[in-house]
């Protein structure tokens, strides 16, 4: 459609610009403040820093536990993603493309979890994890998150695999290929777009997971990145080192910005698929 320049159009564009500013301005403000000294920040939040204090980032990284929590997050996400994606992929295949007795029942039972509120399961889940001695452990969180819930992702990837034509497997079987070979030589390569989308969503879900680490991790050396800045924020109410806190928040955002820029198309498409099917 053409660019129009009526009065109405100017007001619509103004409104959209305001919303854009509402998103960008706080973020840029935090970047701006993260490059000052505390003295400059407390004196006047609008003052231009004399020198850009990149050292705040170094301090956040080493002194405020950001480095440790970033490595913890890497471990937690890496392992959860690996195990979780493995299970989601093999299950999506088995539950959508293989016929066996009880398949419908298992599928229905997994989909049941989409209707459960989840929030009441927090306490029994905690008691369960405690009985396995999996609390205060990143590995415990990995087990909980990679085995616990995957109905939505299973549905996403299952839907993708179900849409592949039946012939792709049949000709391979005629050639004498085994089921395992068909799975990893044909099904997995053809499903890569679906697998990538699900993996991105899992990554973001894990990176943004706050309640899980909050409930289970009590040792500061095990904090994930989100939990770390949460406790830093509380700490800063007594120890006024705001500029370093700002730097920590920005460091937390960097991996997400990367993922968003790289996979923006998949994220937006996946959002729509998930909503339409859910």
């Amino acid at each position: 459609m053409k660019q129009k320049n009526g009065f109405a159009d100017y007001s619509w564009r103004l409104l959209m610009a305001l919303w854009a500013i509402g998103i960008l301005f706080p973020l840029l403000w935090i970047v701006f403040e993260s490059l000052k000294t505390n003295r400059e920040f407390f004196a006047d939040i609008w003052s231009i820093p004399e020198k850009l204090k990149w050292v705040n980032y170094a301090n956040a990284w080493t002194l405020l536990g950001v480095k440790q929590s970033m490595f913890n997050t890497l471990y937690y996400i890496g392992l959860s993603l690996l195990i979780g994606m493995f299970f989601t992929t093999v299950n999506a295949y088995a539950l959508t493309r293989l016929d066996f007795r009880g398949r419908k029942l298992i599928w229905a039972m997994i989909m049941l979890s989409l209707f459960l509120p989840g929030i009441n399961a927090l306490v029994p889940q905690y008691v369960l994890m405690r009985s396995f001695s999996l609390t205060n452990s990143l590995t415990g969180l990995v087990i909980l998150d990679s085995l616990g819930e995957s109905a939505l992702y299973l549905m996403l990837l299952g839907g993708f695999m179900a849409s592949l034509p039946k012939e792709v497997e049949e000709s391979a079987y005629v050639d004498g290929a085994s089921l395992f070979k068909v799975f990893y030589k044909i099904i997995v390569p053809l499903s890569i777009p679906g697998i990538v989308t699900v993996a991105i969503f899992k990554f973001m879900g894990l990176y943004n997971n706050f309640l899980g680490p909050l409930i289970y991790l009590s040792d500061p050396r095990k904090y994930t990145i989100g939990l770390n800045i949460y406790y830093l924020n509380i700490l800063m109410q007594y120890k006024t080192n705001w500029v370093t806190l700002f730097a920590s928040v920005i460091i937390t955002l960097i991996p997400l910005v990367f993922v968003y820029v790289l996979f923006q198309r998949q994220i937006m498409e996946g959002t729509t698929i998930g909503a339409v099917k859910g």
Binding site: F87, M109, I110, A121, V123, P124, L147, G148, S150
Partner: peptide
């Protein structure tokens, strides 16, 4: 494929909800 994942789901998701 289904065995361990479904067992995990029953244990970590369904069972706590019922409990």
């Amino acid at each position: 494929a289904v065995g361990p994942a479904f067992a995990g789901y029953m244990l970590f998701t369904l069972y706590p909800n019922l409990m």
